[in-house]
Design a protein around this nucleic acid. Structure first.
Lengths: 337, 337
DNA sequence: GACAGAAATGACAGCGCTGTCAATTTGCGA
DNA sequence: TCGCAAATTGACAGCGCTGTCATTTCTGTC
C-alpha cells in the first residue's frame, strides 16, 4: 500500500540506512548512489512518514508558531504572518502547528512543554510580545529548542526578522512636520511591545530633528485597539490646544481617532491629520484613506521561518534580517490648517 | 527521562496494553483498574507520544483545518474560526494543522494526499467555499477521512455547523423595510459561497413578504472585498433612481459602500442606509457604526471541531448544529429620507 | 460445584524510520 | 604491490505505542 523507505532501498539495491542518509541530506553518500536513490524516490512517489521519523530520530519536521492573541488585537496581522510561515514550511517540507499562548498564568509553560515533549517540535517562530517574554525564552532555551522572532526588542543574538520601525516612525512624523504641523500628538501602543517603544522613539526623533518641543500632554497611552484609539483621541480633544495631527502607533487606533474625530465633528484631514502604522487592509478602507507605514507581515513571517529552517538544517547560524518599510502617504494627512 | 506508557504500567502493576486501553478509553477495562491507571498517569505526569501513537495505531490525534485564503478576503473570519478550532482541540487533546489550499489547479489534491498519507490526519475541518468543493470532498471520501464543515451549502448528510443566514438576511432587510425604505439594493458576494446565495435569498424573501418588487438593477455582483463594494456602490449610484438603502452581503463590502458614499458626497445614514453581514470588528470601527448580523465565527469553529471529535471518538454520528444569529442594529441605518 | 460464555488482561510482533557501530570499499603514498 | 586512513555502506536494535490473538478471571446457571 504505502511506499516505505525499505521499498526504495530494495528498488535501488542499497540498504535502508543509505536511503535514510539521502533523505536526510547527510554527507558521505556517493554522488552516484544519491542520484539513484533520489530517482527511485521520485519515481515511486515515496513520502517519508513524519511519525516514524519523529519516533526514531531526533527531528520531527514540525515547527510551532507561538502567538498571544489576547495581546494582539490585530488578528489580520497574525493571519498574515501565519500565511507567510506556512509559505516557508511548504517550501522546506516542514509542518506548522499554530499555538496561541496566554502570557498570564502558567498556561504557557504547560503548552510549551507539551509542544516540546509531545510533539518533539524542532523549532519555534514567535510574534510580539512573546518575542521578549523572558520566562518563555528561558523555557525554550532549557529545552534547547531554537526559535526565530518577528520584531523582537532585544536584537542581540536573536534570529528572525525585524524592521527599522523607529526610522519609519520618524519618517512618518517628519512628513507631518513638513506639512506644517507643529502640534503633533502620539498615541502609544501596549507597553510590552517593542513596536510601542520604537514608534514613540521615532516620534521623538522627528520632533527633535526640527527643534520642536516634546510635550507630554500630547502623548496618550493606547492599547493598539480601535476602542483605545477612540478614548485616547477624546482625551486629546479635551486639551486646551488641540493637536493638528495625530500619529497613532497602529492603524486600528488611527481608525479610532478618525471615529472620534467624526464624533466630535472634526473633518479629516481638513481639521486634523491622522496617521497610523502597519498598513493593514483597514487603512485603505477608511474614509479618507489612511496615511501609514507599510509593514510586510506575510513576508516577515516567511523570512522568520526561513531563518529558522536554515538553522535547523545546520546551514549557518541564523540571522536577524531587516526588511524595508515604506511610507504610504494617503488622504488622511494634509497641510496644517 | 521521558515517562513512557511502560513506566505507568510498571507502576500500576498491569500490562502496557491495559494502560493503552485506558488511554484510549476502550471498553472492557475494570473500573478499579482504570482508576488506578489514571491516577498513576496523573501522578507521573505521563504524556503519550503522538508520534508513537500515530505510527503504531491508526489514529494520529491530528486534525487539519482547510481553508482557501485566496477566496476568503476576510482574514479576520478565518483567524476567528481557527481560534475556535484550537479551543476545541485543546479541550480534546487534539492538535491542529492549518492548511491553506488553492482551489485552482491540482494543488489541493497533492496537499490533501500529503495530509492523509504523511500525517495520518484523523479528520478535517473546512470553511467556505471549500465545504462544497466537490473534488475535494470526493478525495476526502476516497481516503475515508471524516470532515466537518462550517456553513456548508449542502446540508444533507454534512456534519458541522451552520447558521440560518437566509432568515438573518431576511430579518435585516425587513428592518430596512420597516424603516420605510422602498428602494433597497443588494450587493451579492462571490458566487460559489453559500453565503452569497442565502443572503440574496433572504433579501428576496423580505421584499416578497411585503410585496415589494424585485428589481434586478438593484442587485449588483461583488466579491466580498472592500474594493468590490466600492465599485458596486458606484454602479448603484449611477442609476437614474438611487436606492435609499444598500444591503451588502458582508461587512467589508458595506465598508466599501460607505467609502463610495463619502466619495459621492452622500451622508450615511441621512441620504443612504447601509448594512452588512458578519459583524466583523470593522463594523464598529466605521463611522457611523454598521448595522449588520452577528455571526459567531469563533464559536462556530469550535462547534465544528467538537462535532468532528465526537465523531472521531465514536460517540454519535456527528450533527449539523445550527447557531443563532443576532441582528446588530447600529447607526448606519435610519428612516428612509 | 462445575461449566459455558463473557469480561478483563496480557504476550508479542511490528508500525517506518534513525542512531550506533561495525564492515566494506576506495584512494593514495611508499 | 601493500598498508592505512578516509570514505562509504550496512546490520541491527529500538523509538513508544497499538493490533491481534491468546489467556486468565469472572459471571451466572443448573
Amino acid at each position: 500500500m504505502r511506499v516505505r523507505l525499505e521499498d526504495v532501498a530494495r528498488a535501488t539495491g542499497v540498504s535502508p540506512k543509505t536511503v535514510s542518509r539521502v533523505l536526510n541530506e547527510e554527507p558521505s553518500v556517493k554522488e552516484s548512489t544519491r542520484q539513484k536513490v533520489l530517482a527511485a524516490m521520485e519515481s515511486m512517489n515515496y513520502r517519508p512518514s513524519p511519525a516514524a521519523r519523529g519516533l526514531a530520530g531526533s527531528r520531527s519536521f514540525l515547527v510551532a508558531m507561538l502567538y498571544d492573541n489576547n495581546d494582539n488585537p490585530a488578528s489580520t496581522y497574525l493571519a498574515e504572518v501565519q500565511d507567510g510561515v506556512l509559505d516557508a514550511c511548504d517550501a522546506h517540507r516542514y509542518s506548522m502547528m499554530a499555538c496561541p499562548l496566554r502570557m498570564r498564568g502558567q498556561d504557557f509553560i504547560r503548552r510549551v512543554d507539551a509542544l516540546v515533549f509531545d510533539h518533539h517540535i524542532d523549532g519555534v517562530i514567535m510574534t510580539p510580545p512573546l518575542t521578549d517574554f523572558a520566562p518563555l525564552l528561558q523555557r525554550l532555551k532549557e529545552h534547547g529548542v531554537p526559535y526565530s522572532s518577528i520584531s523582537p526588542v532585544q536584537h542581540g543574538g536573536a534570529i528572525g526578522v525585524c524592521m527599522d520601525e523607529q526610522q519609519a516612525a520618524k519618517a512618518l512624523v517628519t512628513h507631518l512636520v513638513e506639512l506644517g504641523h507643529r502640534h503633533i500628538a502620539h498615541i502609544v501602543g501596549i507597553a510590552n511591545h517593542g513596536a510601542s517603544r520604537w514608534r514613540m522613539a521615532g516620534y521623538k526623533d522627528a520632533l527633535a530633528a526640527v527643534g520642536l518641543p516634546f510635550d507630554p500632554q500630547y502623548v496618550v497611552q493606547g492599547e493598539f485597539t480601535f476602542g483605545s484609539g477612540v478614548i485616547a483621541a477624546r482625551e486629546l480633544f479635551a486639551l486646551p490646544e488641540l493637536p493638528t495631527a495625530i500619529f497613532a502607533a497602529n492603524d486600528d487606533m488611527a481608525a479610532g481617532v478618525m471615529w472620534a474625530a467624526n464624533e466630535r465633528g472634526l473633518k479629516v484631514p481638513r481639521d486634523l491629520s491622522v496617521c497610523g502604522f502597519d498598513d493593514t487592509p483597514l487603512a485603505t478602507q477608511l474614509w479618507p484613506p489612511l496615511t501609514t507605514v507599510r509593514q510586510p507581515s506575510r513576508e516577515m513571517g516567511k523570512l522568520a521561518a526561513l531563518q529558522l529552517m536554515e538553522l535547523l538544517r545546520g546551514r549557518g547560524t541564523g540571522l536577524l534580517v531587516q526588511v524595508p518599510y515604506a511610507l504610504q502617504l494617503r488622504e488622511s494627512t494634509s497641510r496644517a490648517p
